[in-house]
């Protein structure tokens, strides 16, 4: 969502990633809406805005990664043609470049293990903040990404050292797999969050409406025609939610 809209809702800045982190503050500082419909709608709007913001960030990242990967593949294709044609050489830098690439392999392996440890700490050891199923699935995805990262670094390192067609091909395949894994992780995180936001908002709506109906009984009586009419309208609202939820699943 554009920052102008956030400002209208009380926000005034974004974080270093361009994400309007002020949403949390906005929840605390914005004027409190009065009607029930307004309260629920405001909560849903805040959730949707956070989703929109994260979605925009994700889309931008995927576009950048996709472009980079595409450029890389084009270079690889050119490389294949050049090898076939016998490219021009600079033998005097061969020894130096080999030594440098050997060091890069060590660095790459070190980074890969560090990456795996970070993943383990951040997403697998960390307590699940949401449903156990979601956390477990996410943890599994990240663990796989960690393994892919190790494989990618190793494959690239091998390619860097021996420069064989097979090693380079394996490195390209490993990078491609990691790229697809990261993209899948981002997309599914977005999808999970969207489903959870909707579920939380619906649950909040249902609980608050049930509470209101209970309190209303004290004023108008449970067996009154008015109570029956309002209950039926609430049920109709639920019918729509269930039908639409089924269609979206």
């Amino acid at each position: 969502m554009p920052i102008e809209n956030w400002r209208k809702m009380g926000a005034d800045s974004t974080d270093t990633e361009g994400v309007p982190v002020v949403a949390a503050e906005q929840m605390e500082t914005a004027p409190q809406p009065q009607s029930f419909a307004e309260k629920i709608a405001a909560a849903r709007a805040i959730g949707q805005s956070r989703l929109d913001s994260a979605g925009a960030t994700g889309a931008s990242l995927f576009k950048k990664a996709s472009t980079g990967f595409s450029n890389f593949l084009n270079k690889a294709k050119t490389w294949g043609k050049n090898v076939a044609a016998g490219a021009a050489a600079f033998p005097e830098i061969f020894a130096a470049s080999t030594e440098m690439l050997g060091e890069k392999l060590d660095d790459a392996q070190e980074r890969a293990w560090q990456f795996k440890e970070n993943v383990q700490e951040k997403y697998i050891n960390a307590p699940a903040r949401s449903t156990a199923e979601w956390a477990a699935r996410k943890g599994e995805q990240v663990k796989n990404l960690g393994a892919q990262g190790v494989e990618m670094a190793s494959a690239v390192g091998r390619a860097a050292v021996d420069g064989s067609v097979d090693a380079i091909g394996n490195g390209m395949a490993a990078i491609g797999e990691s790229y697809r894994g990261v993209k899948r992780f981002g997309s599914e995180s977005m999808q999970f969050a969207r489903m959870q936001m909707a579920s939380i908002a619906d649950d909040m709506d249902r609980r608050a409406a049930a509470n209101r109906l209970r309190k209303l009984e004290a004023r108008i009586g449970k067996d009154s025609a008015e109570h029956k009419r309002i209950s039926e309208k609430l049920n109709l609202k639920r019918q729509f939610e269930f039908s639409f939820a089924g269609a979206a699943a």
């Binding site: 990633e17 929840m27 956070r50 989703l51 994260a54 981002g186 995180s189 969050a193 936001m197």
Partner: peptide, 12 residues
């Protein structure tokens, strides 16, 4: 909802 949004930001 905030916890979900924060977690999504972390994921991104």
């Amino acid at each position: 909802m905030k916890a979900v949004a924060d977690d999504l930001d972390d994921s991104m």
